[in-house]
Simulated scan of single mutants.
Amino acid sequence: MSYETGIKRGDRQQRLSGLGFIGGAILIVVGSLLLPRAPNLGDIQAMQKAYAEQAALLQACALLLAFGFWALLIGTAGVYHSITTDGAAWARLGFYFHLVGAALWTIGMSLDISYPAAILNWLAASESNREVAYSVVTVLSPLGFGRGTFPLNIIVNWLAFTFFSIAVLRSFTYPRWIGWYGLFLGIAGLALGIIMTFTGREAVINPFVIFMFLNLVWWFAWGIWIIRKAW
């Protein structure tokens, strides 16, 4: 099958796009593997203890995850500019949603950076200020304010990937397997995000881990394909 001329050898934006997908996948893998965890994510006291003991590591992982999603945004920017015919409207819609999704992801990671700092401030607070300090911890907790931002994060970002996948299927810029794979992941992400809205992420953490692994494979494979075409 011949592809459209959206990707040309030597195209610098497409090189950056491919590197964005690959680099984003790698950063997210590293940040996720190093992320401190409690044995039971629903045990708020165990989580607070783990995060207090490894506050700097949690903050570093949050930065890696933020950098990873920004790198993916570089990848999708290249996709948006490479699809110029039948799927262009869908690619444009996908990119706009991904801009919102990247902003939501950044907010979520900023909460993960603030949360361990709030825990340390609470533990160091005097008796008179301890209750106020703990109220800040409660607001920033993944079971507090974070419980609402994470499902919306998943819904918006994977709605964007759904639109990108439709754009791929309507054009001939990329192989169709990238589009079908992404469409499956986009629909699965929407379903997971909606379920998390009512149950919290703790209830579906195992399916979510599998889901993210499949996404990492998709992003990495897409980046490799672009690099081979553009380099």
Rank of each mutant, 00 (worst) to 15 (best):
Thr5Leu: 11
Ile7Tyr: 09
Ile7Ala: 09
Lys8Asp: 08
Arg9Asn: 15
Arg9Asp: 11
Gly10Ser: 11
Gln14Pro: 01
Leu19Phe: 12
Gly20Ala: 06
Ile22Met: 15
Ile28Asn: 08
Ser32Ile: 00
Leu33Phe: 14
Leu33Met: 15
Leu33Trp: 09
Asn40Ser: 09
Leu41His: 11
Gly42Leu: 09
Asp43Gln: 13
Gln45Arg: 13
Gln45Leu: 12
Ala50Val: 15
Ala52Tyr: 09
Leu57Glu: 08
Leu58Ala: 12
Ala62Met: 10
Ala62Leu: 01
Leu64Asp: 05
Gly68Leu: 03
Leu72Thr: 04
Thr76Tyr: 12
Gly78Asn: 04
Thr85Lys: 14
Thr85Tyr: 12
Phe97Ser: 02
His98Asn: 12
Leu111Pro: 02
Asp112Trp: 13
Tyr115His: 14
Ala117Val: 14
Trp122Ile: 00
Glu127Cys: 01
Ser128Trp: 07
Asn129Cys: 06
Arg130Cys: 09
Glu131Ser: 11
Val139Lys: 03
Gly144Lys: 06
Asn153Arg: 02
Ile154Pro: 07
Trp158Ile: 01
Leu159Thr: 15
Thr162Pro: 03
Phe163Leu: 14
Phe163Cys: 14
Phe164Gly: 03
Phe164Leu: 10
Ala167Thr: 04
Ala167Glu: 07
Val168Cys: 05
Arg170Ser: 09
Trp180Ala: 07
Tyr181Leu: 09
Ala191Asn: 05
Phe198Asp: 11
Ala203Glu: 14
Ile205His: 10
Ile205Tyr: 06
Asn206Pro: 01
Phe208Glu: 09
Ile210Pro: 01
Leu216Glu: 11
Val217Pro: 00
Val217Lys: 03
Trp218Val: 05
Trp219Gly: 13
Phe220His: 08
Trp222Arg: 00
Ile227His: 00
Lys229His: 04
